[in-house]
């Protein structure tokens, strides 16, 4: 086998540069947040986290993510399939339209839903007549979050699917597999990393979104405050410890998905090793 790794000094140089970059832009800010959260000891931290308003904010944040992430995953897989496996006219336009929510300032993402569903908005009078509340209530928060996190899964999957081509799927189909079978058995295992990253990013952003949600939430304490909004409130109350404690809570919530990812990674690696050790026939029999 030919050597495909860099000389040791290059390797360490690259690692060092990457670490310095990550340190300056990521680790130090994080340390700042965590050190502030624990600056008055763990007792105060726990007290801040257990506060009822914080807990209700956590609940709302989880609920929001639980609705908007799956919705965007279904969309992302569908869009990636259509875009990566087929060629059609206007593909670039479609791709760009999918990217669009990223290009919209969070303030504006919130504002468009206000202009749509607010009392002065287009659908406002109709909604008021039927006593349906969308903005300044949970549906508005979910909508704004879904909008903001809209492109993540699709954007992660498309390059991966494109890089993979469609030979394997075509082979499966011509061997008589159904569309769903092909998707579950061939495509999904191939794209799982991309999908996983997409879900992680989407989830992290769904829980952390501030600007758009802030416009549509109405900030009613204990009711329509998500965790990021609650953080701002606490900070403005000069409750710095509590504010940063809530922020670390958010970081930890996002990390749960990462732990999940590591678990899957670890499991599949184990499986692969087992598989490699097994002769072909046994593997087929066990499958």
């Amino acid at each position: 086998m030919t050597d495909t790794s860099e000389p040791g000094y290059v390797r360490w140089l690259l690692i060092a540069v990457a670490l310095i970059f990550m340190g300056l832009f990521l680790v130090v800010p994080l340390i700042a947040v965590f050190s502030e959260a624990f600056s008055e000891g763990i007792g105060l931290f726990l007290q801040a986290v257990k506060e009822p308003d914080t807990l209700s904010a956590v609940k709302l944040t989880l609920l929001t993510a639980a609705i908007s992430v799956p919705a965007n995953v279904v969309f992302g897989v569908a869009a990636a399939w259509a875009i990566a496996k087929f060629s059609f006219r206007g593909k670039n336009l479609l791709l760009t339209l999918i990217d669009l929510p990223f290009a919209v300032s969070p303030v504006i993402s919130g504002l468009i839903f206000v202009l749509l569903f607010g009392t002065q908005g287009v659908l406002g009078p109709w909604l008021a007549a039927h006593d349906i509340k969308i903005i300044f209530a949970v549906p508005g928060i979910v909508l704004a979050t879904t909008f903001v996190t809209f492109p993540f899964v699709a954007r992660e999957l498309i390059p991966v699917m494109e890089a993979q081509g469609k030979d394997e799927e075509e082979a499966a189909i011509s061997l008589g597999a159904s569309g769903w079978q092909t998707f579950w058995r061939i495509t999904l295992p191939n794209i799982k990393w991309g999908l996983l990253y997409g879900v992680i990013l989407c989830n992290a952003r769904a829980m952390g979104e501030f600007g758009a949600v802030s416009v549509v939430s109405g900030h009613i304490r204990g009711m329509t405050n998500t965790l990021p909004l609650h953080v701002e409130i606490l900070y403005n109350e000069y409750q710095f410890v509590a504010a940063f404690a809530a922020a670390t809570l958010l970081a930890v919530l996002a990390l749960v998905t990462l732990v999940l990812k590591s678990l899957i990674e670890w499991k599949t690696e184990g499986q692969q090793r087992e598989n490699e050790a097994m002769p072909e026939i046994i593997r087929e029999a066990s499958a």
């Binding site: 206000v114 607010g118 002065q120 802030s214 109405g218």
Partner: peptide
């Protein structure tokens, strides 16, 4: 009594747009 707090102008806009 429920409380909502934020920048004065922003709060005013929320009421205009339907915060009850």
């Amino acid at each position: 009594i429920k409380q909502s707090h934020g920048g004065s102008g922003k709060q005013s806009r929320s009421v205009i747009d339907g915060l009850e």
